Computed example of a mutant assay.
Amino acid sequence: MFKKILAAMAMLFAVASFAAVDVNKGTAADLDGIKGVGPAMSKRILDARKEGEFKDWPDFMQRIKGVKEKKAEKLSAEGLTVNGQAFGGQASAPAAAKADKTAKPVKAAAAPAVDAKPAKP
């Protein structure tokens, strides 16, 4: 019985590992197989890929119209990867830089005053 359970788990793992499609390597048919990617998006991906491979998810989101953070999360959950990496929820570089510029500095609390005179015995 244990061998059957182990074999079933190994088969499930194998199926799950083959379900991932990398945007830099997948064909139009592979990309269309991902839920949320239709023929129009797969064409945009293939056209953008002709200019160069996608470096990471922010690069993919910047170059493919209609893919923002929420859509990237859904596509990643369906098995789409960029260079073998699932979407990690990181914001694109320009948005992160903008957030840094708009952040207000935090003032440090004042240190308590220390008496400079030595204590008398």
Score class of each variant (00 low, 15 high):
1 M>W: 09
3 K>S: 11
4 K>N: 12
5 I>R: 11
8 A>E: 11
10 A>L: 15
10 A>T: 07
15 V>A: 13
15 V>Q: 04
18 F>T: 04
19 A>W: 00
20 A>H: 07
22 D>P: 01
22 D>M: 03
22 D>F: 12
24 N>E: 04
25 K>F: 02
28 A>C: 01
31 L>Y: 01
32 D>R: 05
35 K>S: 10
35 K>E: 10
35 K>A: 10
41 M>A: 09
41 M>E: 04
42 S>A: 14
48 A>S: 14
48 A>W: 06
51 E>Y: 03
51 E>T: 14
54 F>Q: 04
60 F>W: 04
62 Q>N: 12
62 Q>A: 11
64 I>E: 03
68 K>P: 00
68 K>E: 12
69 E>F: 02
69 E>H: 03
70 K>A: 13
70 K>H: 06
72 A>F: 10
76 S>T: 09
77 A>Q: 11
78 E>V: 03
80 L>E: 02
81 T>F: 04
83 N>C: 06
87 F>M: 06
91 A>I: 11
97 A>E: 15
99 A>K: 15
99 A>D: 14
100 D>V: 13
101 K>P: 00
101 K>N: 08
102 T>N: 13
105 P>V: 09
107 K>D: 14
108 A>M: 08
114 V>W: 03
114 V>Y: 02
116 A>W: 06
117 K>E: 11
